[in-house]
């Protein structure tokens, strides 16, 4: 190796080292906080370990998984979660996209209105859960007061088993519709105005333009927004935990809530790890389906 090549080699090595210095800390944090727990919990999911008792840990194979999959309550919780996801994300999508269509056109005070609409999204879910608990309180809540102004009867927002899940969904909608709106709006504003002008010249009606230009061009972002919301709503924990604690009875018991109970009330750590993995696999499957659907609409 002559001197020049050696110098080049050293320089390349130096650059490589520099890259390591930059990436290293992030990698370290990721390994400690994410990757290690992921692998560790996978191991635990095959044991009877409980973080409360110090009894001998023994390998139990797929016993945890089979117990969870045979538990009729778990399937009920999955149903509850699914109902929550469909209602909340469905309405968030309709409202969010509708708002985005309205906000697509500039008007006086556009900036202020848009910012105000985005506020709920920026709040902490715990804070949101807390003040909505007050708003929805059956006796001194503002919501029932407003309803009474119209001469309607009190509604037991969080204690009526037929209503409680939808009350939580309502709060989720209040909080996350702005998110769907924001992403839809980004997509809508990215469509060049000139396309609409060309369509005007081509004598297209509003509806025709919406169907043939707006929808196809904004749909990848719409699907993305829905994907985010479905994954997030599937994991719903904070609002339920604060507002109903899974009650009344177990009507608002989502899978995350039930997972929490299993891990930190019953301290069946091994079993809870298995359940976490089942949820993880379901979410990955669900998002893969959605991503595949995006790619298919793109290809078409």
């Amino acid at each position: 190796m002559d001197g020049k090549a050696k110098a080049m080699h050293q320089k390349a090595l130096g650059e490589y080292r520099l890259k390591l210095y930059f990436i290293g800390p992030t990698l370290l944090v990721l390994i400690i906080m994410n990757i290690f727990p992921l692998i560790w919990s996978l191991g635990l999911s095959f044991t009877n370990y409980s973080s409360l008792t110090s009894k001998q840990i023994s390998f139990v194979g797929f016993a945890n998984y089979s117990r969870i999959l045979r538990d009729p309550f778990i399937w009920k919780y999955f149903q509850t979660t699914a109902r929550f996801v469909i209602v909340a994300v469905g309405i968030e999508f309709l409202l969010g996209f509708g708002l985005a269509l309205l906000l697509k056109e500039q008007f006086k005070g556009w900036g202020l209105v848009t910012t105000l609409i985005l506020v709920p999204m920026m709040l902490s879910p715990v804070v949101v859960g807390l003040f909505w608990t007050f708003i929805m309180d059956a006796n001194f809540g503002v919501l029932n007061f407003l309803i009474s102004l119209f001469g309607l009867k009190k509604v037991l927002w969080l204690t009526n088993p037929h209503i409680a899940l939808y009350s939580v969904a309502l709060v989720d909608i209040w909080m996350w519709t702005p998110f769907v709106m924001l992403i839809s709006l980004t997509g809508l504003l990215a469509i060049p105005k000139s396309l609409y002008e060309a369509a005007d010249i081509d004598m297209a009606s509003w509806w025709f333009k919406f169907r043939k230009i707006t929808l196809p061009l904004v749909s990848p972002l719409l699907v993305l927004a829905v994907l985010f919301r479905v994954i997030d709503a599937f994991k719903m924990f904070d609002l339920v935990f604060i507002m109903t604690g899974g009650g009344p009875g177990d009507v608002t018991e989502t899978v995350s809530m039930s997972l929490y109970r299993l891990a930190f009330n019953k301290f069946k750590t091994g079993e809870s790890c298995a359940m976490a993995y089942i949820i993880l696999i379901l979410i990955i499957a669900l998002s893969n389906l959605l991503i595949r659907w995006i790619n298919r609409t793109k290809a078409a």
Binding site: L195, E197, A198, A199, I201, K212, I213
Partner: peptide
């Protein structure tokens, strides 16, 4: 849309997500 003028733009402005056929058919389907 009620004037029935055709406009050929300087940068053409074809509909990017449609085939040439659908681009040509657009004013007839609209």
């Amino acid at each position: 849309r009620d004037r029935n003028c055709a406009f050929v733009f300087q940068n053409y402005i074809l509909y990017p997500h449609m085939t040439v056929y659908d681009n040509l058919a657009f004013p007839l389907r609209s």
